[in-house]
Amino acid sequence: MSAATPAGGAPARPDPATLRALGPVAFVGLGVMGGAMLRNLVRAGADCRGCDASPATLERLADLGCPLFADPVDAARGAAVLVTMLPTSAHTRQVLFGEAGRGGAAAVLADGALVIEMSTGDALETDRIAAELAAAGLRCIDAPVGRTPREAAAGRALVMAGGDTEDVARARPLFEALADTIVHVGPRGSGIRLKLVNNYMGMVGMVMTAEALMFAAKLGLDRATVVKVLSTTAAGRGQLNTNYPHKVLAGDVTPDFPLRMGYKDIHLAMNLAASVGAPLGLGGYAREMFALAKSWGREEQDCTAMLLLLEDLAQVPR
């Protein structure tokens, strides 16, 4: 893992000459995130061309001071770097290879150009696209971004890059214009996989938070008080920020709070939820996982040993 700046520091900014030395950069996909990212690249001094299929989007970005195109082939012609920031992998494939695999942006890039796929797409299709680009003599890394549009606009995105070390190094000046945290996750395909793990955790957390607040409301509790209290507990702050680093991730599953007691508590909560008609779907699944601890010989281990239980079930090698 590597970061562009220490935590809490001002974002690193590349020397404009270093950015321009990359050669022409075509940026395809100028939605909320992509438009903010292109704006930062232009501001940092990159030689950019933007592209989007939406006339309204191009009009919104008309003040950028760089050429804008509706056709990705026009934007990519002769470019040394092509960035894709698109809704799906199908859009990326169409931009790169065109209809029926012919006539796309990949065909008009400079020799040895670097394609940086920053979309959140299908991991296996991302692998296939990268292999096809490599067969065409093009370099490719997957580098999806994290955080919010507001942080992207401020140049404080998170970049999770998967690819060869030299390719990620080549892209680093560009990333430094976009992000304050740049992580080289591993080989090609690693970036999109970590992004999907992150999004899985985030979206399940959305449901869990909604369930908890709904449960509290069904019990007649004051929402502001509930939010205030939960914001100070491990439940609200998140296990990765509280218990996991000090227990299971440190190799310690001696019980601060055993899985046996975790089962008791979630069972009590589920019974209370049933009495007031609060649907807790995630709670039902979690109770079943806690119930397995006894048969797997883990009921007296710390609750964070849930990680080991699930790894047992998934046959994750240790």
Rank of each mutant, 00 (worst) to 15 (best):
P255M: 02
T254A: 14
A177K: 03
V226W: 12
A212I: 06
G121H: 06
N199H: 11
T304P: 04
A135F: 05
A4Y: 09
I182R: 00
D71K: 04
L292H: 08
K195F: 04
C140A: 14
G31R: 03
D71L: 02
A135I: 03
D312R: 06
V168F: 09
A21Y: 04
G112E: 07
R156F: 02
F27L: 01
G262C: 09
N199I: 07
A135H: 13
A152C: 08
I192G: 01
A224I: 00
A212C: 11
A269G: 08
A152F: 01
R139P: 02
N241S: 14
L307E: 01
E125V: 10
R77M: 03
T84N: 11
V32I: 11
A44Q: 11
G220D: 14
M214Q: 12
L30V: 02
D167K: 06
M270T: 05
D63H: 10
P16A: 12
H246Y: 04
A90E: 07
R77F: 04
L109N: 09
L109C: 10
L61S: 08
G162V: 03
A179S: 13
C48P: 00
G103R: 07
Q239I: 06
T120P: 05
S119I: 01
L219H: 13
S231D: 13
A286S: 12
G104E: 13
V32T: 15
A250I: 02
E211V: 02
G297S: 04
V316T: 12
C303H: 15
T5A: 15
M306I: 10
V145Q: 07
Q94H: 06
E151V: 02
A100K: 14
G29K: 00
V73K: 08
L114C: 07
N199E: 08
L133K: 11
P149W: 03
L230P: 02
A44M: 07
R170K: 10
R193V: 07
P187M: 08
D164V: 02
R170C: 09
T225Q: 14
G98Q: 09
P245D: 10
D63L: 04
D164T: 06
A7W: 10
A3L: 14
M160Y: 15
M33N: 11
A286V: 11
A274E: 13
M270L: 15
